[in-house]
Design a protein around this nucleic acid. Structure first.
Lengths: 423, 423
DNA sequence: ACAGTTTCCCGTAAATGC
DNA sequence: TGCATTTACGGGAAACTG
């Protein structure tokens, strides 16, 4: 009898990129009577898939056989680490690929098989086990789609290997899905999502049904079809934000300073009674991987006015860290002395008190030169802009939680996919 | 009899990166009597190098045999294009690499051989020819060093294949070298160097000997040993500037607005009698791939003062194009209204007149948002900075020349290396 | 033509070798 | 140990392919 595989990978397990190394580990759970020969394990990709069913076929380019060894941890278990495994696609001279034309490559499930054979007391025993379903990609641009598949599969089934899962994928309840989404943020950015943030995401995905957490989300709606009016799906949008946080916003996110998911209505409700200069940070809904701030001010006749800056994306943020943008952001109106409109982080934290620790001390001391830095500026031609405040973004707000720093690069390796044998 | 190879490659010929495809072409110059069999050409890497002499050995990973074909241009010549050739290093089980420990990998010369054999009128004829010396690299970071070798070789010898060239490389006269350097700029950036620019480079390399153009430059001084006090060689420095121009400064360079190579003394001589706010653009001598501007102003007691901004490198320039930096650069002194110190491009061209066409029109119209841009700023704490004007950079100035736009990405392929056979 | 997918390869970072 | 060189692979873009 074999147990199902138990892959444990720190970052994005179960996704393999062709041409990129991955590792996997197999462990024999029962102790065998001492044998004087070496126990070889062979790993095969898609060993027993009916080859017509899958549109792409891959093989392990590198050495796929290795001898089991006693584990270091001296529990006496036999195990083997496969390292530097690499996948390559089989090319057919003129063979037609399988006709599974409806599924995208990231919905196509594969598996790694492990085989060993030994004789004990005259009895020949074949062992075989295999991994959970794997997604094979050829470019990192497919990673978000692949990860969506892995999440959906593991959220909605306990079957160890239902390779046809995406032929008719089940729906997820919002309560299931929201938990997974929050877990994405806590795993990859260090801190999960609070109820308000999840609320906004639920409304975005489901409309007003979010109140009943049994409402179901289809796989297609989650990651295949585009958000109405946008050129990307819900998951692509959310994943772009995760990436932005991982690469450029970790400290700020960690400090709980990014409300992030707030509707325009909620944003205004929150800001309208606040001190002028109160601002909050939220992610762009119209573009992938963007963050903006919205602040409130009072105009001449005493009314409140809301302004949002053009969202910052990874390119801008790699030129200037976000905290510095917040510190230095200034508005110039018709050549007047520029001033920063950002005074208090919602609800009422003085800006420098909140972000002070996160500022970069930048005066460089290249002596003969005058140090220079980039400053984010908005130039207002007063007549034109005062009539164009924030007029977009439906999102609810939220309260921050705690945060454990956990920044790791994304990676495709199966760093450790342990698989257990037993008799 | 074979003729030497005539490689013609648009960008950086004769440099091959392992694992990256390259192509080459061989042409048979004489017309053969019609033969009813196909003439095969085989290409071999380092066919007849005494294998002890070279520290690394490579082989052609891909198919290295191809049949000659009549050229398209219907001149009746037989020729063959090798495409998708790829080089890989031979790894020795325990073999010691050749003992040529003095040479760096980019000084190690290799060659591609081509062989064909055919029978005509009962006579068996073997043809063989080979390429000019090649440099093999494994990472683009070695490209500048490799290109230095190719330049030096082709500048200083006509031998078709002196593989030991860098065992004892000859010196170049400054007049030879300066021509090659200027040619680098005209080839890769569209416009060569004028006499003043070359003068500064010569002084940098040779001290004051530059007056006599027979003065000789050693290979080591050109590209191996570091400039005194700097962690890079002359060529590494110059090449970093070429790259900066190619990627970020082409339009400005094309317009002849970058004086570039000017000593600090010359810079001051030029600027001191000019209108306050007159500035010039020059490359950093202390850091790789940086450009700065120096402007003149008058201080309180009527003396002239020179300021240079911290050099902009590729990272900053990819966040903000250089022309926009010049347009927007401002100095803030203790919270006073910021102002641009840059008024006239040396000698006296009003800034916007010179750079107006090159500015990016940046107001983005993402309606609900307030457009924002980055602005380069220097903040002066008046007491500290006014005593720290430009205090570095020995370089002479120069006058601009003409410019033909010619922007091409660097590339390592031998796109076409034609080689000729004859009897 | 076009969209989904793969290939190509620079450029940075890490690993390896000497 | 430090430096020279290679390997690894993310990421943008081009090439491919039905």
């Amino acid at each position: 009898e074999k147990q199902p595989c138990m892959p444990t990978h720190p970052q994005k397990p179960l996704i393999i990129k062709t041409g990129v190394q991955f590792t996997t580990k197999v462990r024999l759970l029962v102790k065998l009577p001492e044998v004087d020969y070496q126990l070889k394990v062979k790993t095969t990709f898609d060993k027993d898939l009916p080859s017509g069913r899958v549109s792409r076929q891959f093989f392990i380019l590198t050495n796929n056989t290795k001898v089991m060894d006693i584990e270091d941890y001296s529990n006496g278990c036999l195990s083997v680490d496969f390292r530097h495994l690499q996948l390559k696609e089989k090319k057919y001279i003129n063979g037609t690929k399988g006709s599974e034309g409806l599924l995208s490559v990231t919905e196509e499930l594969h598996s790694l098989s492990f085989e060993a054979c030994f004789t004990v007391q005259g009895l020949t025993i074949d062992l075989e086990t295999c991994s959970l379903p794997l997604v094979v990609i050829s470019n990192v641009s497919q990673l978000p789609g692949g990860w969506a598949s892995v999440m959906w599969y593991n959220l909605l089934t306990d079957e160890p290997r239902n390779m046809a899962f995406f032929g008719n994928p089940p729906r997820a309840t919002w309560s299931q899905l929201s938990e997974v989404l929050s877990w994405q943020f806590s795993t990859f950015a260090g801190k999960g999502l609070n109820k308000e943030q999840l609320n906004m995401l639920g409304e975005k995905l489901l409309g007003q049904h979010v109140s009943c957490s049994d409402y179901q989300v289809s796989w297609s709606k989650f990651s295949k079809e585009n958000i109405p009016g946008k050129p990307f799906s819900f998951w692509m949008w959310l994943d772009s934000i995760l990436e932005l946080i991982k690469k450029h916003l970790l400290p700020v996110w960690n400090e709980n300073y990014i409300m992030g998911f707030v509707s325009k209505e909620m944003e205004r409700t929150l800001l309208k009674d606040r001190e002028p200069g109160t601002f909050l940070l939220r992610f762009s809904e119209s573009h992938l991987g963007g963050i903006t701030f919205t602040w409130v001010e009072h105009n001449a006749n005493g009314g409140v006015k809301f302004n949002s800056v053009e969202p910052y994306t990874k390119n801008r943020l790699s030129a200037l860290p976000f905290a510095d943008i917040i510190r230095d952001y200034k508005v110039i109106s018709d050549g007047v002395v520029p001033e920063t409109p950002l005074k208090f982080l919602y609800p009422d934290i003085p800006k420098d008190e909140a972000f002070g620790r996160l500022y970069n001390s930048q005066p460089s001391k290249v002596h003969p030169y005058i140090p220079s830095t980039l400053i984010p500026i908005s130039e207002l031609r007063t007549h034109a802009i005062s009539t164009a405040p924030s007029r977009q973004s439906p999102e609810p707000p939220m309260t921050p939680g705690e945060f454990d720093m956990l920044s790791e690069q994304l990676c495709f390796d199966i760093d450790s996919m342990s698989s257990s044998y037993s008799e």
